[in-house]
């Protein structure tokens, strides 16, 4: 848990940036939310969890037996995987079929439905043990990392173009297909555009009283 992110804790403006360190970012709410992502897992051979049968909805056993398949949240799957108690397969958004689609044209994929923390969860998956064979495991991770970068770069172009051009328009059409991180970047572009246009149109010339003073009760007495 060595999150060495430069982000400070801020509740007013969420900034779903990726964790900078190799671990999670302790203070990031988005990181916290993304860790609930379900990971298809399977209990390893020769391992069983006593009296935990009830966490798997489709079995009536009292114990969680070996080779049971179930979805576990990312945070749990990660530590169990590290102790080699479970093996995992990729969630749907990272499977081969999805990757083919992403390499064909990432700009048309709905990453909100397939995420909405596509990149953040993707980075976490890189820390799993994906295959018992070390070489295969590394190969798989390299391919996943490549997909993540390619997707981000190619989508970023569209996001930049649209975020610097939509003004006073309904952007939900655009943003409802974006991953949370992309949405954040989109909003940054929009903010800059709005400020620039407001400056150009001279909206800033009118100096307004701070809302704090105009709402203050003390002054309204007379």
């Amino acid at each position: 848990m060595s999150g060495t992110s430069s982000q400070t804790l801020s509740f007013t403006k969420p900034s779903p940036s990726l964790p900078a360190g190799t671990g999670e970012d302790y203070w990031s709410l988005d990181d916290f939310i993304s860790s609930k992502e379900r990971i298809p897992s399977m209990v390893e051979e020769n391992i069983s969890f006593q009296r935990l049968g009830h966490i798997c909805p489709h079995t009536r056993e009292a114990h969680l037996l070996s080779k049971t398949k179930l979805d576990l949240p990312l945070w749990l799957a990660k530590s169990l995987n590290r102790k080699e108690m479970i093996s995992i397969t990729f969630p749907k958004a990272y499977k081969e079929s999805m990757r083919t689609a992403l390499s064909a044209d990432p700009t048309v994929i709905d990453l909100h439905r397939n995420g909405p923390y596509f990149y953040s969860v993707g980075l976490s998956l890189l820390q799993f043990k994906l295959d018992k064979d070390r070489d295969k495991d590394e190969e798989e991770k390299e391919r996943l990392a490549k997909t993540l970068i390619e997707t981000f770069v190619r989508r970023l172009r569209v996001i930049m173009d649209s975020s610097h051009n939509y003004y006073c328009a309904n952007t939900t059409n655009m943003t409802n297909q974006l991953d949370e991180l992309e949405k954040y970047l989109f909003s940054l572009g929009q903010e800059a555009l709005t400020k620039q246009i407001q400056y150009e149109r001279g909206h800033n010339k009118i100096i307004m009283a701070s809302s704090l003073t105009s709402n203050s009760r003390k002054r309204k007495r007379n």
Binding site: S17, A145, K146, L148, I149, F152, H164, L188, A192
Partner: peptide, 27 residues
């Protein structure tokens, strides 16, 4: 100013993605 926040943040995130990926390439 018109591109500062968007550009710096995007490159930041891209750098994080790449550094994670490189870690796997070097391991």
């Amino acid at each position: 100013t018109s591109v500062r926040s968007f550009l710096t943040q995007s490159l930041d995130q891209l750098h994080i993605l790449r550094s994670h990926a490189n870690q796997h390439a070097t391991q």
